[in-house]
Computed example of a mutant assay.
Amino acid sequence: MFDKQYRFRGRHAVRVDALTSVFDSNSKAKLFDRNVDVYANAPLVGFLYGRTAEQDDTRNPETNQVYNQNVMGDRVIYSQEELQFNFRLIMLLDKDYEPNEDARIDKAFKHMGENPDDEARFDSYVRGGVDVLYEKLIEGVSSPDEYVTRLYDFIEEFQEKFNDEISSDDILKLCSK
């Protein structure tokens, strides 16, 4: 698993292209430098926001070809450790997908990548995360200042939603169990 090219298709390919495009021609600023950066972050965003998405086959009206954006195999392999960590984390935490704790542990460690359904679940979080990132950071934006504002708002929302209620004591309690 995570040893070959990954392909975004349809609307997700278009959205990845937008997420990795220069939004300010003066500074050459981008939200994400490369497709692999989106691929590494999107599943976590999708999981945390509870968003999955089905494969999409939106076509380019000029060519009638399904839109594609690739993450080259060497980039996937280079990021394999991070991608495996994210996969394991999601398999461990996704109680809706697998209610049994022992089975989640097995999916994450013993049988990682053996079940096509597990990989499909992970990929659905990738696509859902791409949708969240696009909606929060790109959709409806028309100026570089708006991109920066959207990014700031997203980071602030993320902090409030997922980090504000966590204290150092809570982390220490979890680590000492």
Rank of each mutant, 00 (worst) to 15 (best):
V14A: 08
H12F: 15
D24F: 10
L44P: 09
V36Y: 02
R15C: 04
D24E: 13
F47R: 03
A42V: 01
F32M: 07
S21Q: 12
L19R: 02
Y49W: 13
G50R: 04
R15K: 15
V36P: 03
V38G: 03
D17V: 06
F23I: 12
R15I: 03
R51F: 03
R11L: 04
A13V: 04
D24L: 12
L48E: 05
R51K: 13
D37A: 10
L48M: 11
R9E: 15
N35Q: 03
F47Q: 08
F32P: 05
H12T: 11
V36A: 07
Y49T: 02
G46D: 05
S25E: 14
T20E: 00
K30E: 09
V38W: 05
L44G: 08
G10H: 10
L48F: 14
H12V: 09
V22E: 14
R11Q: 13
D33L: 11
V14P: 05
V16S: 03
N26W: 05
V45T: 10
F47P: 00
R9A: 09
L31D: 06
R9V: 06
T52L: 06
L48K: 15
R34M: 12
L31S: 00
N41V: 15
D37T: 14
D24H: 04
F23T: 06
A13M: 09
A42P: 01
